[in-house]
Computed example of a mutant assay.
Amino acid sequence: MSPQPAGHTVTVLGECVADVFTGPATEAGPSAGPDALVLRALPGGGPANTAVALARLGTPTRFAGRLSRDVFGELFRGRLARSGVDLSACVTAAEASTLALADVREGGQAAYSFHAEGTADWQWSDRELAAASLGAGMCLHTGSLALVREPGGTRVEEHLAAARPHTTISLDPNVRPLLVEPAVYRERLHRWCELADILRLSEEDLAHLLPDATPEEACDTLHTAGAHLVVLTLGERGALLSLDGVRTTVPGHPTHVVDTVGAGDSFTAGLLHHLATLGRLGGRLDALTLDEAVDAATYATKIAAHTCRTPGANPPWSHDLSSTGSAS
């Protein structure tokens, strides 16, 4: 990999969420009784996961988030800082942290229920967003709930538009129908495509956003709306890439799956990291070739696969990849 530029290369804007997993009562010890439910909290949230993965891979990364003063907020700060993420654009918020109760089912897939009303992540003000200097750096990545939950969602969208002349815009809708009706995402999808240079979405996202379209039809629709590089992740089957309508697929990277929490976020980080090393971030992707996009997505599948090997959203460090022969 080529040396990274000084300062931060990518700003990630969005939420931190505590992923809370359940365990058997026996984990609480013999005094807990048969009716106990053990809860184990791990730091998560799609944008925060992406920031952590980028920094661990070696891309200078800044996170813009509203972090609570509560115990979970301290958990988030610690994880981000230890991963090497710049927290200078974060806001210390009076509101509580967002919690997601994760139910990991057979095959490692996780289903969530959320505790998110009035929590810190969605309360962005224009003043806070302006202070975050979103147009600084070569790339601004955002998406997930911070882009649609009000009152902050509309303001985030406006500040993306202001940042776009100065930076590559990367978006991940990460549809969460339990918290926001899919119709809300669909109403705003066209505007997001106008803003986005890179749009990464999962098969599940596509089913909510364009339910009657094939993947190829969906790519054409998203390109027509303005997105240059569309990446549809297909889980263990890899990803479909479409660069201004020219399409190809990359296979998945075989791995032993413990759970899939954070895999899509790690894929996005791997993609942006590789594009940064190619010098393709900082504009409208005009010089990006399909072969380069394939190389970036192939690297991204390795990062996602590595994340699936461990519980929770725990993306690899660059030295982990070297030790397993997965470095690009």
Results as ranks from 00 to 15, higher is better:
76 F>S: 01
166 H>V: 02
52 V>N: 01
259 D>V: 12
195 L>M: 08
310 T>L: 15
1 M>T: 10
125 S>N: 08
175 V>G: 02
127 R>Y: 04
134 L>M: 14
51 A>C: 01
251 P>Q: 12
186 R>V: 06
144 S>P: 14
113 S>K: 03
281 L>S: 00
15 E>R: 00
33 G>V: 05
6 A>D: 14
140 L>P: 08
275 L>Q: 10
110 A>C: 04
73 G>D: 08
164 R>E: 11
283 G>V: 06
106 E>I: 06
211 P>D: 10
52 V>T: 09
223 H>V: 11
104 V>F: 01
57 L>Q: 01
222 L>P: 07
290 L>E: 09
220 D>L: 06
268 T>E: 12
7 G>R: 02
215 P>Y: 06
19 D>C: 04
113 S>P: 03
280 R>L: 14
181 E>V: 03
313 A>M: 04
69 R>K: 09
272 L>K: 08
93 A>L: 01
47 P>H: 02
42 L>I: 01
43 P>A: 13
242 S>T: 15
119 T>V: 08
105 R>D: 10
302 K>W: 09
129 L>I: 09
226 G>V: 12
204 E>F: 07
135 G>S: 14
38 V>M: 03
319 H>N: 15
11 T>C: 06
234 L>K: 12
36 A>F: 09
59 T>E: 04
318 S>D: 14
328 S>D: 15
134 L>A: 10
98 T>R: 00
163 A>K: 00
242 S>A: 11
30 P>C: 07
247 R>P: 01
78 G>I: 05
285 L>A: 11
325 G>M: 10
86 D>Q: 05
110 A>D: 04
23 G>Q: 11
107 G>H: 00
71 V>P: 00
323 S>R: 15
270 G>Q: 13
6 A>C: 04
30 P>Y: 08
182 P>V: 07
99 L>P: 01
113 S>F: 04
120 A>R: 00
280 R>M: 11
169 I>E: 05
144 S>M: 12
80 L>K: 00
109 Q>M: 01
140 L>I: 15
275 L>V: 10
97 S>R: 02
158 E>M: 14
49 N>E: 00
42 L>V: 06
87 L>F: 02
264 G>R: 05
283 G>K: 02
118 G>R: 03
53 A>Q: 00
309 R>L: 14
141 H>S: 15
296 A>F: 07
188 R>N: 12
147 L>G: 11
285 L>E: 09
222 L>Y: 05
169 I>D: 03
17 V>T: 07
74 E>C: 06
310 T>D: 08
250 V>D: 13
61 T>H: 01
97 S>W: 01
292 E>C: 07
38 V>Q: 05
248 T>I: 07
63 F>H: 14
29 G>P: 07
